[in-house]
Design a binder for these strands. Structure first.
Lengths: 106, 106
DNA sequence: AATTTGCGCAACTCAAAAGTTGCATATATA
DNA sequence: TATATATGCAACTTTTGAGTTGCGCAAATT
């Protein structure tokens, strides 16, 4: 099943996995040691992250190191872009209010 | 129930609502007209978005205009910050590869 | 005052997702 | 070759979430 990017990062465990491997690639076992759940549960999260290409496997013998795929995460950044103008506008309006208050004080 | 910010944007309908009201504040009825679902279904999405403060209500008689809260959306930007270094690094590495290929062509 | 309209809340159904146990496969080690 | 280790897959249970119907309340309209 093709996984949705937003769905993938909705789970706290998966976000924690991403934070971990953004620093250093890890094997499923290494990840499982960090969380209070079975290896299989972590393995399912890995599957979701892999299917939406947020992580990439690197095989090394019988171990699999999963790497963070920054390129995919940028899609989230691109989605956020549509709102950046809004928040800049709203902050400009806040600036206006603040400077108005300032003037009233004087 | 206190809603999770990432959970809130996991649903496509909720993302569509955010995109809509980032342009112009809307009432629940106005939103429901845009989607092929009942007003109550939209109302539940509004509840989720409101609980995590991604939207803010403005009462006007019996109507409620929901506004986009840009400030809250910035928290995603803050979360993404931890990955920015990763993807700049990964793109620098791509640049290296590309310039290596370029040199081989010459 | 009676009716319509806009909205939220509660109970319910149904589907999906998180987590478990058990098993199969491939690689490493004794 | 036998055994231990690393991983993925399938079946199952439990939890969560999306959507519906039905209801009640408050504001507007008649």
């Amino acid at each position: 099943m093709k996984q949705d990017l937003f769905q993938a990062i909705a789970d706290p465990t998966r976000r924690a996995i991403l934070t971990l491997i953004a620093i250093k690639a890890l094997t499923p076992n290494a990840m499982a040691e960090k969380f209070d759940m079975t290896r299989q549960a972590v393995s399912k999260h890995i599957k979701v992250l892999h299917e939406c290409e947020l992580i990439k496997p690197e095989h090394s013998g019988r171990e699999i190191y999963y790497h963070f795929n920054a390129k995919k995460m940028q899609e989230f950044d691109n989605w956020l872009a549509q709102f950046r103008q809004s928040w800049e506008t709203q902050f400009n309006q806040l600036d206006k209010v603040l400077s108005t208050i300032k003037q009233q004080k004087i």
